[in-house]
Write a protein that binds this DNA or RNA. Structure first.
Length: 266
DNA sequence: AATGTTATCAACCGCAAATAG
DNA sequence: GCTATTTGCGGTTGATAACAT
């Protein structure tokens, strides 16, 4: 018995979303929440499959999304998280507020991977390419044990290597300057995170997956309203630094104004 | 200006896990 | 406990923008 396709192939539109479709999707979710992605397109009057709607919403339309390139500290965090979690993009994304797994995955493949390779670091193992198989320092190998992982970021060489490599050979001197300027404050930020044992055990704990309960469930459940609760539905979804949290509502309202705020029934 | 190449990122696909009945 | 269905994830593709020749 074959698996049912996620949607009727006939009459389902593919490809880039139009502003009109976006509007319909946002409007529907704001009004009704998304009780069932499979049924949503029909109810919302969209000729898309539920999967496509979910993706569009989570990767592009969600009001808490950040826009633009990852900042240096975000990038560094991605590298460190990747060293421990591997290609668990959704897990990595859950540590970066306002970023999606897709976005991080794309950024990894287009930017970070190249940077690491340029520095002579294997992006998959996070070990120097020429020492990859020699295991010079076994303590730096990726461990599945949270207790081992816990202290690792302090000793992981990735960050140190990047800083020195950036200074020595980065393609643009302006980039170096920009990064160095921002790094003072941003590294401080990251250091604070790493120094926080409690937070770190949280980060690596499987329990966090429970705390990663759907953003939408707490904010867009059936009958729920967008801003009834605070936008995050609890601290568990976001690391402690997140000034964006404060601005989420404003940003979303700004966004909605692109479509015309009246269309959303505000 | 025209053409070719590379980089980027939104979106799709297939699979596996989770959930419902 | 089993089967069907839904959801979410990670890999990949394809359109197109940016850059080089």
């Amino acid at each position: 018995m074959g698996r049912q396709p996620c949607c009727d192939k006939l009459g389902v539109k593919k490809g880039p979303w139009t502003a009109e479709e976006d509007k319909k999707l946002i409007n529907f979710i704001l009004t009704n929440g998304h009780c069932c992605w499979r049924a949503l397109p029909k109810l919302a009057g969209l000729r898309r499959c539920g999967k496509s709607c979910r993706l569009r919403w989570t990767n592009y339309l969600r009001p808490d999304l950040k826009r633009g390139l990852l900042s240096h500290d975000e990038e560094q965090l991605v590298i460190d998280l990747h060293a421990h979690l591997g290609n668990k993009w959704s897990k990595i994304a859950s540590r970066l507020p306002g970023r999606t797994d897709n976005e991080i995955k794309n950024h990894w493949n287009t930017h970070i991977k190249k940077k690491l390779l340029k520095m002579g670091i294997d992006p998959m193992t996070h070990q120097p390419l020429n020492q990859e198989h020699s295991n010079i320092d076994n303590s730096k190998t990726i461990s599945s044990n949270p207790e081992d992982i816990k202290m690792e970021p302090k000793t992981t060489n990735t960050k140190d290597v990047e800083i020195s490599a950036t200074t020595a050979e980065d393609e643009s001197s302006s980039t170096v300057t920009d990064q160095n300027n921002s790094m003072d404050s941003e590294n401080h930020l990251i250091d604070n995170i790493y120094n926080d044992d409690e937070l770190f055990s949280y980060l690596w704990s499987d329990e966090t997956t429970k705390a990663e309960a759907s953003w939408s469930d707490s904010n867009f459940g059936v009958g729920g309203t967008l801003f009834d609760n605070n936008i995050t539905g609890g601290d568990a979804d976001y690391p402690i630094w997140s000034p964006e949290r404060i601005n989420d509502e404003k940003m979303f309202l700004d966004y909605c104004q692109d479509f015309g705020v009246h269309d959303f029934g505000f």
